[in-house]
Nucleic acid binder design. Sequence first.
DNA 1: TTGTGTGCAAACACTTTGCACCCGT
DNA 2: ACGGGTGCAAAGTGTTTGCACACAA
Lengths: 152, 152
Amino acid sequence: MERFEEYLQAKGKRITQPRRILVEHVFSKHEHFDADALIEELAQRDAGPKRVSRPTVYRTLNELVEAGLLRKMDIGGRAVYEHDYGYPDHDHLYCTQCGKLSEFHSEELIRLRDAVGREQGFRVTGHKFIVNGTCQECQRKTRRQKRKVDLI
Amino acid sequence: MERFEEYLQAKGKRITQPRRILVEHVFSKHEHFDADALIEELAQRDAGPKRVSRPTVYRTLNELVEAGLLRKMDIGGRAVYEHDYGYPDHDHLYCTQCGKLSEFHSEELIRLRDAVGREQGFRVTGHKFIVNGTCQECQRKTRRQKRKVDLI
DNA sequence: TTGTGTGCAAACACTTTGCACCCGT
DNA sequence: ACGGGTGCAAAGTGTTTGCACACAA
């Protein structure tokens, strides 16, 4: 929050109640989320007059990304956000059954990435690496499912 | 094309003129493209009665993906397609200045990916790796730009 | 002839924008 | 009081869908 206030002041922007509510909520948890989830959570948390509107959620999320506090990813054509500030670089495992994202970090990946860039005369500024597959939990479910089918 | 006919027949689907036109066009070039580009190209190529409509383009692209002939990627929230059939696995360098995609292949990346999956009990089925940065051409442009500015 | 495919227009999901009013500074 | 911020509704994108007609099998 202090970090965001700093950013806002530097940009001559204002510290308003909707921004405060949103930022506080976003940084009270550490999960990945999308705009819709956030809008809904804010809606049931603060109904009535102090609710934060849909456009303001989108506007503030963009500001948080610009401020370097959130990282925005596109997963299946929809924007997903995660904490960026004070959070180590990492990549993602995406379970295509349940949609869960988990994280991992690999220095080797960075080395590989930079080596590829160098070879191609490409100035690397970042990357996106998503490993698709099935998480442990869904593998278990699928196995149970299969057993049932096998009994028929 | 033969491959697609095979797929269509297997699914009890029909080989129609729009599908033929689209497939022929898509596989006459080897670049990355999005739905809009394809729609426009088809429009100026075959105007009038034998033009392919927007919905049909989207429907057929989805079929081609299902048939394993095209690969679909999301880049910045928009779908981009590339040939898949008989095309080696590869990943992408994405120039954030001009939007150009180039390709590279790395066995090491696959090994790394599978190792990460194994460590986390994740059954890996695929991945998406996009390296962002500036391509050689845009680096040159930027340098020219900078020189001009320096002279002021 | 049968039922899939097509074009059209409209619906869709997600995100952004125009505008009158509100509120931090 | 000023100028940016907000909510509302409406406009944008990119993509999908309902429907009546067209056409491949």
